[in-house]
Design a protein around this nucleic acid. Structure first.
Lengths: 165, 165
DNA sequence: CAGTATCCTCGCAGATACTG
DNA sequence: CAGTATCTGCGAGGATACTG
């Protein structure tokens, strides 16, 4: 019967999940903070299928997190920009980043165990390394806003010691 | 080909999603903060299928977010408790709650539009109301920690004006 | 380039039966 | 009660072809 919907739960967390609780959406939002605006930006950044991306962008627009505007006057091209509601998601992203910094990458890190699908056995998951196999420290994991990031986003990132994502 | 995994992305947000980015997990964590410990607690609270709950609890234990301990000495019953890593997720939950308070339930609220699957038409989603159909204010949406909530959790909730979820 | 439409596969989830 | 095992199905997600 497919997934259960959380939209009718009396809980802000359930509501938030209903808006952006799927696997891709939050990463799309993250890229938007880094300056992604056009369909192709998200596509190449994330390696997401076109139809899925199309669906997610529509959904984000419907939820008022993105706005869709023609890129130039009377052009057929559009761009997706974070609305105020969307910009308000920055604390969500930074909080997630902070938790991972400390508990996935950071000092509290223990190798994560996952199940191998084929053998159904528990195996330690690969650690995150650079291309040469050297483990990455938390400093290396920050992503800097791209050149397309808006002044507003840059201000937001700068404020309250929130730093890059 | 199934879902794409984010575990190898050099991004804390992707890592966090890989750990608890699915639909149910964060709600399970929320209930843990409210005092849920036993399998049946989560089951009845959430109305989740047994096998899914079992899988999610295992995954949470593997990720070090929950610990599984015998409830009494040498008993066959177990309870799932938030580890320190798990307790560290509280800011994530409160941030999500705050965003929903302001942008889904709060002043910035505009009725959310969703697609009707059958007709493929856009329809406004139900607003959140009480059983009598009266719209709920943000104050009504907070959930209080249950009697099983640990002193540690209560301290955490109290600190930094984080309030109930 | 920016999508839409279609097909297909598999993961997620519900239901249920079964076990200690 | 606390799970595990199995069956089933929807639908999310990937790949690709097609359109303006």
């Amino acid at each position: 019967m497919g997934r259960k919907r959380f939209g009718d739960m009396n809980c802000g967390i359930a509501q938030a999940l209903e808006a952006f609780g799927d696997w891709w959406t939050l990463l799309i939002v993250r890229d938007a903070f880094f300056g992604a605006r056009r369909f192709g930006d998200f596509e190449t950044n994330l390696g997401i299928a076109k139809n899925i991306l199309s669906d997610r962008l529509q959904r984000l627009v419907e939820h008022g997190i993105f706005s869709k505007q023609p890129v130039a006057e009377s052009a057929q091209r559009f761009e997706y920009r974070l609305t105020e509601k969307g910009e308000a998601l920055l604390p969500v992203l930074t909080t997630l980043r902070d938790w991972s910094d400390e508990w996935v990458f950071g000092k509290g890190h223990e190798p994560v165990i996952v199940k191998d699908r084929a053998t159904n056995r528990r195996i330690p998951r690969m650690r995150v390394t650079d291309v040469d196999g050297r483990p990455l420290g938390r400093r290396d994991l920050r992503t800097e806003p791209g050149p397309g990031a808006s002044q507003q986003t840059l201000r937001l990132l700068e404020r309250r010691r929130q730093g890059p994502l």
